[in-house]
Design a protein around this nucleic acid. Structure first.
Lengths: 138, 138
DNA sequence: CAGAATCCATTCCGATACTG
DNA sequence: CAGTATCGGAATGGATTCTG
């Protein structure tokens, strides 16, 4: 055998492998990874971590987000039960967004990931620079 | 005050907030979140978790991935130092891909996230169904 | 075998205008 | 204030073809 070990077809980490691609839980797992990988979702989640916010607060508090993307992002988070939407029957309209209990529990894993990224920032940058430099001379 | 607490402008979770958007470490953090959110990256990482693989092994082991996307995905992972690429000077060509030490350390946080998703699959599905049902009657 | 390059359909997203 | 609706450019990604 040429590789370190193999006793059958391509094996994969159970929770990450394509094998779990077929079962029904996959779409929810992907939904979560999609939210985490989505720039605006993480910023909305991070902003709501310190308490409820109104639509406009989020719009102005998150640099660079468009009204359209904020709406779409909030709808997705709301649909998955990570964020709650509360409409106050007043004039002018007031809508508060907040993390749900479910949304709160998602924060620790996401923060762990971000902290991993912070901890390895230098390593990643060095690899990138080395890679780019190697490509440059081609 | 109307919300739970506020003593200034919109505050955000330090590691997730837009405030960290300005500093230089941000691009690396986003790079990591992008990889985690990327369907093919997670599947490649998950497949390599059990040992080195050749290009074709990955191509056929990961259901649905195209040659183009496998190449692109591997290049990104390689550029960030998460995956190593080893060319063997033989005929026909043989190229082995493997997780680097850095790549190995990324697995636990990612797995934690996936396990969160698994643990809350039902809750998410229920919220979705409820949300979709509510939309349907409009 | 392991890719690089090209073509093309789809999707995404920002900007803008309009509404209750 | 808090959206919705529409349009057009940009980016994404699959299928295909070609190469060392």
């Amino acid at each position: 055998m040429t590789t370190t070990e193999q006793d059958g077809p391509v094996r994969q980490l159970p929770v990450l492998g394509a094998s779990c691609h077929a079962d029904e839980a996959t779409s929810e797992v992907r939904a979560v990874l999609d939210r985490v990988g989505d720039k605006w979702s993480t910023l909305v989640l991070g902003t709501l971590a310190s308490g409820p916010r109104r639509f406009t607060e989020l719009l102005h508090g998150i640099e660079g987000i468009s009204q359209r993307m904020l709406t779409l992002t909030l709808r997705q988070l709301e649909r998955d039960g990570l964020v709650s939407r509360t409409v106050h029957a007043v004039v002018p309209p007031r809508v508060d967004y907040a993390l749900t209990d479910l949304g709160e529990t998602l924060l620790p894993p996401v923060v762990a990931l971000v902290e991993w990224a912070f901890a390895h920032t230098d390593a990643i940058r060095e690899h990138r620079d080395a890679y780019d430099a190697a490509q440059a001379e081609a």
